[in-house]
Amino acid sequence: MIEPATSSCGKRGLIIAIDGPAGVGKSTVARLLALRLGYLYLDTGALYRAIAWKVRDAGLSPEEPLAITALLPKTTLHMACGPEQSHVLLDGRDITGELRTPAVTALASMVSAIPAVREWLLPVQRQIGAEGCVVAEGRDIGTRVFPEADVKFFLEADAEVRATRRHRELVAAGHSVHFDQTKRDMTGRDDRDRSRTVAPLIPAPDAERIDTSSMPAEAVVEHMLAVITARL
């Protein structure tokens, strides 16, 4: 199901898990950390977005879990992980640039709550991290995907700060969205992610929790590197 990639660490390395809600800076921090360590960067959210993209393309609704489940055996999903970005090929087509639109983002949150989708993607994620040397970010990395990860982080931030970051990101990408709508969408996604029955968004008991509200990404990475070094 996946397209394997190699890292530059040259040996069996660590699995580092980064979890948290939208807007806390997971993607930025995970990419920077992977670069510093010479590790692969695994964006698990891109996998769920890819399934959401296919659901939308098929004209299905998230209220049709059986129809969505039926799509999965007919799906070929390849993920090429690099130190800065994960490229996603769905049924032979590179859809990486189409995965972060507001519509796909909203649908991904609903599709990811379908247990069959999470079960189908679980081995895909684990296979990528099987050899270590990976920084994986998502919402259930430290609790379900890699519960035995060597180091776990859970990022948090003030809701207003997170909404501002997300809105800025969307505008920079050329999307015309209002801040209030962005905040409502984010809050709704948080509620769905935290309340779903399978792999809810919660910190792992052994995760280092970091509030990124007033921390630049570089400072967060430096803190993470200090934690990683202390635990080795």
Results as ranks from 00 to 15, higher is better:
E3T: 06
T6G: 08
S8A: 14
S8P: 01
C9K: 07
G10T: 08
R12I: 13
R12Y: 11
G13D: 02
G13R: 04
L14F: 05
I15L: 00
I15G: 00
G20L: 11
A22R: 04
K26V: 10
S27D: 13
S27K: 05
A30P: 02
R31V: 15
A34M: 07
G38C: 13
Y41E: 02
L42Q: 04
L42I: 03
D43W: 02
A46L: 09
A46K: 00
R49P: 07
I51M: 05
I51C: 06
R56P: 00
L60Q: 04
P62C: 08
E63L: 08
E64D: 09
L66P: 01
A67G: 02
A67N: 07
I68S: 05
L72E: 11
P73T: 02
K74V: 04
T76E: 15
L77P: 08
A80S: 10
C81Q: 03
C81R: 01
C81I: 02
Q85Y: 08
V88E: 03
D91G: 07
G92N: 11
D94L: 03
R100C: 06
A103C: 05
A106R: 15
A108D: 12
V111C: 07
V111F: 03
S112D: 03
A116W: 07
V117W: 07
L122G: 03
P123H: 05
P123A: 09
V124M: 10
Q125A: 06
Q125K: 06
R126V: 00
I128A: 01
A130G: 07
A130T: 02
C133D: 02
A136R: 00
T143A: 00
T143S: 02
P147V: 09
E148C: 02
A149K: 01
V151S: 00
V151N: 00
F154S: 01
E156D: 14
E156C: 07
E160M: 10
A163Q: 03
A163P: 08
T164P: 00
T164H: 10
R165S: 12
E169W: 12
E169D: 13
E169S: 10
E169C: 07
L170G: 04
L170C: 04
A172Y: 11
A172W: 08
F179H: 13
Q181K: 11
K183Y: 13
K183H: 14
M186W: 05
R192L: 15
R194Y: 12
S195M: 09
A199P: 11
P200T: 12
A204W: 00
P205L: 04
D206T: 15
A207E: 01
E208M: 12
T212F: 14
S214D: 15
E218D: 15
V221G: 03
L225R: 12
A226P: 02
I228Q: 05
A230H: 13
L232K: 14
